[in-house]
Nucleic acid binder design. Structure first.
Lengths: 334, 334
DNA sequence: TATTTTAATGTAAGCGCTTACATTGCAGCC
DNA sequence: GGCTGCAATGTAAGCGCTTACATTAAAATA
C-alpha cells in the first residue's frame, strides 16, 4: 500500500502539501494539486483513515447502539442513520445492546474506546443517571426515543402521548366504547406515554378507563396472544383493541381469529409503529406510524451539526400519524 | 483521556511493560502486572484502538457489506456475524451496497481504506472478475451466498438447487401436478439454482416444465402480485405455487385471496427463505428455511480462522430444510 | 527596482501505541 | 564468588498521517 511518503517523493513536494490536497485545503497552487493528484492515482494511493484519526482529533466514525440488529424496527433506524452519515462521508459503527443494562454499558464503552466522534444511542436499560454522567464525559451523543429533561436537546423523540391518543380516538370515532388496550412493558417510557394517550382519549370522550380491559405485554408477539387470551377469558365485552405496538397486534389478530372472531368485522384493531409486517398482515393493519427513519436520520444530522459543525436544521420532537388500512371498522350496532 | 504514558509514569515501568500487560503477554511478573493494572483502573485508562491499529498490523475490525440494512433478510445476517465477532472482541463495520455495482464497489473500497482486517461480503452486482481481482489484492474476504469456482473456499453458500428441489417435491408429494413457479430475477445465481431445483423435481416425477406457469419476478412483494395476476389471466390451471422467496409468496397469497381463491384450500403455496414475516402471514407460510444466521456466523468464523488464526471448524455449504406450516394442502380431487 | 504583503510550500514535532532488540537482574551451578 | 542462562524489563524506532510554525516564492506596491 502506497503511503503519503511515496506520494510526496514521486510528486516532488512535501508531506504537508500532499496532506493539503488530501484534505482539500485551498492553499495549494492548482498546478501542484494536479500533479499530486495524478501521482496519487498512479500509485493507487488511499490515505489511511487510521493514521488520519491518530494525527487529527477526529475519527470520522460515529458509534451507533441499537437494541437489536434484527427486526423491522431497527432496520429502518440503522439505514436512516447510515444514509445520512454516508453522504457526509462518515462511518457508523453499529453495536447492539439487547436491552440488558450490562450489555448496553459495555457497548457504549466499547464505542467510546474506539474513539467515536459521537454516539447515537437507542438504549432502554441504562439509567438516566448513567447517561447524565456520560454527558459530562465529553463524548457527544444523541438519544433516540428517550427523553431526559436535563439533556433535552440531545433527545430525539416521538410524541407517544399523542400517538396513543389518536389510536384510541380513532376507535372512539368509529363508535367503539369498550376498548381493550394491550400495553408495552410499563418500565419503558414510551409504553407509559402511549397508555397515557389512550387514557386521555378515553377521558376526553367520557369513557372511564377499565383496568380489566388493559393488559401489560412486553412488545413481543407472544404477549399479544397472551393478552387476547386473558381478555377473552375474563368474559368482558370489547369491540376494539388498541395495541402498544404492531407485533403484539399481530399476535392479537391471530388469536382473535382462532377464537372465531373476525377482524375487523367483530373486532377492530389498531397497532403502533407501522413496521413492515403491518402491511403483510391479514387484514392489513391500521396503525400509528413511527417515523423511525426520519428520526434516525435526524439523529445523524444532530451529529453532523453538533460535532462537525455542519449547517443543518434540527428537529427534536416528532408527531405520529395514523395510517388507515383494513383492520378497523365501525362498531356493530345490535 | 489517560494515555499509556500516564500509566507507565504512575506505575514506574516502561511503555513496553504496560503494552505487555495490555496485550496479555506472559512475560510480566505477576506483581508488576498487578501494579500496572491497578494504575490503569485508577486512571480509567483505556488503550486507544486507533493507536493500536496504527502501530500493529491489525485493526481488529471486519468490514461487512450487505445489500440492505433493513429487511428481515439482512437483520439475522448482521446479527449472526456481529455476535460471533463480538465474542472474539472484534468490531464489524457495516455498509450497505443496495445491489448497485457502483455502490457495492464503493462500499468495498471504503471498507478497505478503513484498513479492515477482512471483509464479509454479500454482494450481487459486482462481477466475478472484480472479486477475483480483489482476492489478489491481499484483502482477505468471504462471500456469503455467492459461489465462485476459483475461490470456492472463500464462499459460504446454500444449496439452492436442493432448496428449490424440496420445495417443489413437497407439492408433488401432496398430489399437485400443475405447479406454477414464481422465480427471482434470473441474473442472480440463487434464483437460477432454485428454479433448476424446481425443474429437477418436476423431471424426476415425470412432469414436464411449462413455460406458461413460470414467472420471473424480482424477489419483491409486488412481483408476487404481478405474477399471480399474470398467471390467472393466462387461464392455465394450477393448484400450487412455488415461490422463489417469501416476499413474493406474500404478494401471491394476497392476490389469490383477492381473486376469491383460498390458500391453502384451493391453492397450495410454498415460499423460500423463512423470513420473519413468513410466520406472520395468513396462512402461516410453509417455506424453505435459509439458515442465514448460521451461515453468517460461519462467515465470521471464517475470518477468525483465516485472519486471526483461531482454531474453529468451518463449513462451506449449507443444506436447507422445508418448514411445514399452514399454506399447503393436498390437491383437491374432483 | 526595492520593499512590503500575501500566497505557497516546507519542516518537524507529535498522535498513542507495538515490537525487535538491548539491557538488567537473579536463580542455579561449579 | 564468579559464571551461565533465562526471565523480566527497558529503549527507541517506527506506524502514516496532521498541523503550528518557519521559510520561500510570487504578487502587489511604492
Amino acid at each position: 500500500m502506497a503511503t503519503i511518503y511515496d506520494v510526496c517523493r514521486e510528486a516532488g513536494v512535501s508531506m504537508a502539501t500532499v496532506s493539503r490536497v488530501i484534505n482539500g485545503s485551498e492553499r495549494v497552487r492548482p498546478k501542484t494539486r494536479e500533479r499530486v493528484v495524478s501521482v496519487m492515482e498512479q500509485l493507487g494511493y488511499k490515505p489511511s483513515h487510521i493514521a488520519q484519526s491518530l494525527a487529527s482529533k477526529f475519527t470520522n466514525s460515529i458509534g451507533i447502539q441499537v437494541s437489536e440488529l434484527t427486526g423491522s424496527f431497527y432496520g429502518p433506524m440503522m439505514s436512516g442513520i447510515d444514509e445520512e452519515l454516508h453522504k457526509a462521508n462518515k462511518q457508523g459503527l453499529i453495536t447492539s445492546g439487547r436491552s440488558s443494562e450490562e450489555r448496553e454499558k459495555h457497548g457504549i464503552e466499547s464505542l467510546i474506546s474506539r474513539q467515536c466522534d459521537a454516539l447515537i444511542l437507542h438504549v432502554e436499560a441504562v439509567s438516566d443517571e448513567y447517561l447524565l454522567e456520560l454527558s459530562k464525559r465529553n463524548v457527544p451523543f444523541v438519544l433516540l426515543n428517550r427523553y431526559i429533561e436535563e439533556i433535552a436537546d440531545q433527545c430525539i423523540v416521538l410524541d407517544d402521548l399523542h400517538g396513543g391518543y389518536i389510536a384510541t380516538k380513532s376507535q372512539i370515532e368509529l363508535g367503539h366504547t369498550d376498548i381493550a388496550y394491550i400495553s408495552g412493558p410499563l418500565w419503558k417510557g414510551d409504553a407509559i406515554q402511549r397508555l397515557n394517550g389512550h387514557k386521555k382519549a378515553l377521558k376526553e370522550h367520557g369513557i372511564s378507563f377499565d383496568e380489566d380491559l388493559c393488559f401489560e405485554g412486553d412488545y413481543f408477539k407472544e404477549s399479544g396472544i397472551a393478552a387476547v387470551e386473558s381478555l377473552l377469558s375474563k368474559g368482558k365485552h370489547f369491540s376494539a383493541v388498541v395495541c402498544g405496538n404492531d407485533e403484539m397486534a399481530a399476535g392479537a389478530i391471530v388469536t382473535l381469529r382462532n377464537a372465531g372472531l373476525s377482524v375487523p368485522r367483530d373486532i377492530s384493531i389498531v397497532g403502533y409503529d407501522d413496521i413492515d409486517v403491518a402491511n403483510y398482515l391479514y387484514p392489513r393493519l391500521t396503525t400509528v406510524k413511527y417515523p423511525l427513519k426520519e428520526m434516525a436520520s435526524m439523529a445523524a444530522r444532530w451529529v453532523l451539526k453538533n460535532v462537525y459543525n455542519q449547517d443543518v436544521r434540527l428537529e427534536n420532537k416528532f408527531v405520529p400519524d395514523l395510517i388507515h388500512r383494513d383492520s378497523c371498522s365501525e362498531r356493530k350496532v345490535h
